[in-house]
Amino acid sequence: MAKIFMIALGSVLISAFGTLARAEPPKRPPQRPPQRIVSVNLCTDQFVLALADREQIAGISRAGKDTHYSALVARAEGLPDHRGASEEIVMMAPDLVVAGAYANRQTVHLLDRLGIPILNVPSVNRVHEIFPEIRKVADRIGRHDRGVKIANALETRLQDFSVNEKRATGALYRPGGYVLGRDSIVDDVMRAAGLGNRVAELGIRGEDRLPLELLIMSPPDFLIIDSNRPERPSRSRRMLQHPALAKMPTTFKTLEFPVRYWLCATPPTVEGAEQLANTVTERLMTARKEQMP
């Protein structure tokens, strides 16, 4: 009799545990979206400005209001800004700090120790890698639907204008002789525009310095300048006015492109890539017309 009772009890317990295993875990109350978001640097500014409600933004970096570096200056107008110091950011009373690869590590570490929630947005080297970051940031700040909409629209836009063939070569040349080769957002944007990166073809990865003589010996079809600021002269920028660059045997004239679109990979990068693709198309068509008898 006892044996039969134990068997019956075991069956009941197994059935009960099975029911518990199948039961859904209790739902947590929805997390309240942050109401005082502070972006630490220029790159994260672009995500916050693109995705957050204006009322949610407690502060952005000073660079986020510079038309040379920021593609979303109009949205930044009137917002509080900071120079990146931890004291300034703390005084803004953030309930979420958005930081990234180029943020000051000591500042972020201090903010974290103070118990301020941190959202890290990593630096990426491919345009298509921006879209998951858009969705991640949007989810964290309580703007899921907006993030999905913007990411999907940008993804479709990229597919529509991307060129799947190498139409010409290009090389970005910055003050001080700095260039960007393979494994960089500049390289990927150029590829989307149908340009082969001459710097990458020379074996350079990421950011490096390239002697002017070597660039002249292997001239690209497009010499791309993105950092020319006549109102802020410097010794390194004078290199961009070097007579040798003006006399380079390039097939086409120097092409100026806004640095704000690819200083780091952000939502506006897609717009910049489309602009570059359209400019290359126009230059190629003009060159063909000039060659016609």
Rank of each mutant, 00 (worst) to 15 (best):
M92V: 06
I216S: 10
D183M: 02
R83Q: 14
P249R: 07
E87A: 13
S218K: 10
I89A: 11
T19I: 04
P26L: 15
R28M: 13
L276V: 00
T250C: 08
I14W: 07
R260C: 03
A246Y: 05
L72K: 02
R140M: 13
I185G: 12
D221H: 01
R28A: 10
R174K: 12
S15W: 03
V280H: 07
V108Q: 01
I224A: 10
L9S: 04
G147M: 04
D188W: 00
E129T: 05
D183S: 12
T19Y: 15
S218I: 06
L245K: 00
E165G: 06
R229G: 08
Y102K: 06
E282L: 08
P33S: 06
L215F: 09
A23Y: 13
K149F: 09
V270C: 03
G78T: 11
P132Y: 07
H82N: 04
G100R: 03
G181Q: 11
L13I: 06
E133F: 01
C43T: 12
R235D: 04
S11T: 15
T251P: 15
G115A: 10
F131M: 05
A85V: 12
Q275R: 13
R22S: 12
E207P: 08
P220F: 04
L210V: 11
P122F: 00
A2Y: 04
A85N: 14
P30G: 07
R22I: 12
R83E: 14
I89K: 02
K3I: 12
I150S: 02
L154Y: 12
L42C: 08
E24C: 07
S227R: 14
P258A: 03
K136S: 02
K289V: 07
H68P: 08
C43V: 04
L158C: 04
R22Y: 08
D160G: 11
E88F: 08
L223W: 00
L9M: 08
V179A: 09
P293C: 03
V121Y: 01
D45V: 05
G181L: 05
V137T: 10
G196F: 00
N164D: 15
P29F: 09
S39F: 07
A153I: 03
D183I: 04
A71C: 05
S70A: 05
M6D: 12
E24Y: 02
E155C: 06
I141P: 07
L111S: 12
L180C: 09
W262F: 10
K149G: 06
A277R: 03
R209S: 13
K253L: 11
P211D: 11
R235W: 10
P243E: 10
L245H: 10
